[in-house]
Write a protein that binds this DNA or RNA. Sequence first.
DNA 1: CTCCTCCATAAGCAGGAACTTATAGGTCGA
DNA 2: TCGACCTATAAGTTCCTGCTTATGGAGGAG
Lengths: 134, 134
Amino acid sequence: MTRAPVTGAFEALGDPVRRHVLELLAAGERPAGEIVAALQARAPISQPGVSQHLRVLRDAGLVTVRAEGSRRFYALDPDGLDAARAWLSGLVDPLAQFAQPLDALATEVARGRRTRPTTTGQPDRPAADGRRPA
Amino acid sequence: MTRAPVTGAFEALGDPVRRHVLELLAAGERPAGEIVAALQARAPISQPGVSQHLRVLRDAGLVTVRAEGSRRFYALDPDGLDAARAWLSGLVDPLAQFAQPLDALATEVARGRRTRPTTTGQPDRPAADGRRPA
DNA sequence: CTCCTCCATAAGCAGGAACTTATAGGTCGA
DNA sequence: TCGACCTATAAGTTCCTGCTTATGGAGGAG
């Protein structure tokens, strides 16, 4: 249920502003206000506009929110991001489904095993877009 | 110059139909006609519609085209896909830029070193969306 | 040369995505 | 309690994206 549908993830990643938000969050969690300020420093955008983007990212399972007082701290959600990455890996080579764990291990080693033990979820297989025509 | 702008890649990945195309191509290169047929087997779409999607994928550097007689064979472009994957990796952990080569190695091993020697391109850093306001 | 196949581009239209302003809901300090 | 943040939602508009039909050009088969 905490499942991140890759499908929605790529839709969310399609927007430059949202990618920018993710890059900001790569440096660590931030309250919405700071995100708004950071984005506005680069291009004119309203606070509600940013808020809406944040919602999309959250619905896509790419970020998480933590409420502290009146502020909402946003952070990257490794699960969602890994799911997307896994999908891409699965494209180039089906066997990469196997390589995934190794992949994660390599990353883990590289970072000195900073945080979580096994982020490696088993995401959806490459599959399944629901297409809706007219 | 053969550079694949990650930026455009994610835009291309945002569409379900295009993701479906990529999944088809994961099984190997195919002429446009087969792609059209395969997509139409799942949902009603016209030949020009598919052709346009293919163009977007090509412009994004996610697929390549090879002309053979009157047919155009499309295939996945590992460079573009790896670039996208690298961007995602860079998000979760900046050091993953290092992990990338290892990552590729793991994949290589898993597949039994089927094809190309070093696909591993050096993609763009996380950066830079051009925002266009009014 | 003529026809047929395969694929791409052109043009036009419709639905949705992203932006805006306005407003409401919490939380904290005075 | 009152007022000042901080953030989310509502409502409305605009523009972009994806779809369609129509058409053109290039490559074999006859």
